[in-house]
Structures are given as C-alpha cells and as structure tokens.
Amino acid sequence: MADKILIVDDSVSMRQMTNMILSGAGYEVVQAVDGKDGLDKMSADIKVIITDYNMPNMNGIEFIKAVRTGTVNKSVPILMVTTESENEKKQEGKSAGATGWITKPFDKDTLLQTIKKVADPLGF
C-alpha cells in the first residue's frame, strides 16, 4: 500500500504539479480544493498533508486548526506551503499546529525530502 498524501490547494496547476511529483515517487495522492474540502477528504490512513496558505472558504491556518482539533488522524504531519519567506506566516502556521512548511517554489527533491522529514516511517 502506497502512502497516502493529501494535497490541499485551490490552484489546479499547483495540485497537478505536486501530484505529478508525488505520484512519480510512488505516493498515493488525494486532492482537495480548499480547507473545507480537505476536511472532508481527511481519513485515518493519510500519512502527510500538504496545504496551501491562501485559499478561499477555509484557509490553510483554519484548516490546520480544524484538523488538530478534529477527531480523525489529528496528529498527522502537516506541511504548509508558503510563498512568503517571512517568519510571521510560518509561525502562524506553527502555532496553528503545522508540522513544517515548504517554500514555493520548490523542486522535486526539496518536496520529497521535506516529506521524508515529517512522514513517520513507522506509522506512528
């Protein structure tokens, strides 16, 4: 069983790009168009969540908070995608419960390494 990764991003091209990289690396990818959709697509077998910051309906911060206070898979590693290099966003994400972040633009290696950094190989 391939590890499942949830991508939450309102940008189709971002999702498509990320999906291409991750599928190529053997992950199973679940896509959501915003935080609300992401919550609906949450499941216990998701290994890592990659979420955008700015999204309509429910942004990345609200989404992370909702996952952390939810009932399903609440301690799943969550990576927040930001374009900002300022600390502010990252800290906001951190305090909402993000495990880490990944800065746009990222290449294939950065993405896969960052996932490796947070994905629990033991299925903790």
Binding site: I78, K94, G97, A98, T99, D120, F124
Partner: peptide
C-alpha cells in the same frame, strides 16, 4: 509536539 504532527524520532534519525 505530537499534536502538531512532529515526531522527535525523525529529527534524531535525520
């Protein structure tokens, strides 16, 4: 830290 999905073991491994 477990609540934020962080796993100290991964850091040790890294």
């Amino acid at each position: 830290s477990f609540l934020t999905g962080a796993n100290p073991l991964l850091i040790l491994n890294e």
